[in-house]
């Protein structure tokens, strides 16, 4: 044959296998503890639940054992938390921070998604690429600029956090948009869609599940940066300022307590976003071997 490129004529079907099929599924009925130690195994909910409990107990045990004497143990931290909550007004501060972080999250989501979707227009691509390079810039350097530009302290804070989150959000989301394969566009085109309709169907709706996932990561990044931002613009208080104050006085138990609280709130938020994602995009995890829920 003169074909310079002899390819196997029947490539394996690329269609996803039904749940329970494949190497991992063949022994699925006999899930034992051994499966936990074999690669690519899918284990049942109860087995995973026990695994989680065991590992949580290990971490707690390690903490109780106090390998580093300097660090506070669980009881001290919990006592500190109760103290902060009842006598020092940690609750209202937390509420301030939570409201602020949600506000920033909403803004940064709106801005980042808009910018990412705009990359379907070539004219916006360089600008968006530039915006995503903002990841390398220090927040501290912007606080003065925003203070000079913006009228009130809340706006300065908001601008700082929105900026900090958006540069990461845009980077992830724009790359999701850029990675959409040509065949998806072509498929939509064969259905008589205009290019705008193609953009809506393929770029906006087609990446919604990924957008939620990125939103989730950015919500976490937001909490991480919140303390820095609140520290840079302290007028309104918030857990960030609270934390920095405790830190200044070497109150390690209190610092741990606040961290623990932030972790709890963060996990709750993370779970909430995951829940919304599953409701809005039930298709999202169908092709995964390790499905959540």
């Amino acid at each position: 044959m003169s074909d310079p490129n002899p390819v196997s004529p029947v490539p394996p079907s690329s269609s996803p296998s039904p749940p329970g099929a494949g190497a991992a599924g063949t022994r699925a009925r006999k899930i034992g503890a051994l499966d936990l130690f074999l690669p690519n195994r899918v284990v049942s909910g109860p087995v995973m639940g026990i695994t989680i409990l065991v590992q949580a107990a290990l971490v707690l045990g390690l903490w109780l054992a106090k390998p580093v004497a300097l660090l506070p143990g669980p009881q001290e931290v919990l006592q500190a938390l109760a103290r902060l909550w009842s006598t020092q007004g940690l609750g209202p501060e937390l509420f301030t921070s939570l409201r602020f972080s949600l506000e920033a999250l909403a803004w940064s989501t709106a801005i980042s998604l808009t910018l990412s979707y705009l990359t379907v227009l070539p004219v916006f691509r360089p600008a968006v690429a530039l915006a995503s390079k903002g990841r390398f810039l220090s927040l501290a350097g912007f606080s003065l600029v925003f203070t000079l530009l913006l009228s009130n302290a809340h706006l300065v804070k908001l601008a700082l956090l929105v900026f900090a989150m958006s540069v990461f959000f845009v980077t992830s989301m724009a790359s999701v948009v850029a990675a959409i394969p040509k065949e998806k566009f072509d498929h939509a085109r064969t259905l008589r869609m205009s290019e705008w309709e193609v953009a809506w169907e393929v770029v906006v709706l087609g990446t919604l599940a990924e957008a939620f996932e990125i939103l989730r990561q950015n919500a976490a990044i937001g909490w991480m940066m919140l303390t820095t931002v609140e520290g840079l613009a302290r007028a309104e208080g918030g857990v960030g300022v609270f934390l920095l104050n405790q830190q200044k006085h070497f109150k390690l138990e209190e610092v741990f307590a606040i961290q623990l609280l932030i972790l709890g709130v963060g996990l709750f938020q993370d779970y909430g976003i995951g829940l919304i994602r599953r409701l809005c995009c039930p298709h999202a995890d169908l092709t995964l071997e390790r499905r959540s829920g």
């Binding site: 998806k184 064969t190 869609m193 709706l205 298709h283």
Partner: peptide, 18 residues
């Protein structure tokens, strides 16, 4: 013009989100 002809490509593309 695209869309006039029905087209089924090699891997049967569909909208995964619908």
């Amino acid at each position: 013009a695209r869309g006039v002809m029905g087209v089924v490509a090699q891997n049967y593309p569909l909208f995964a989100h619908r």
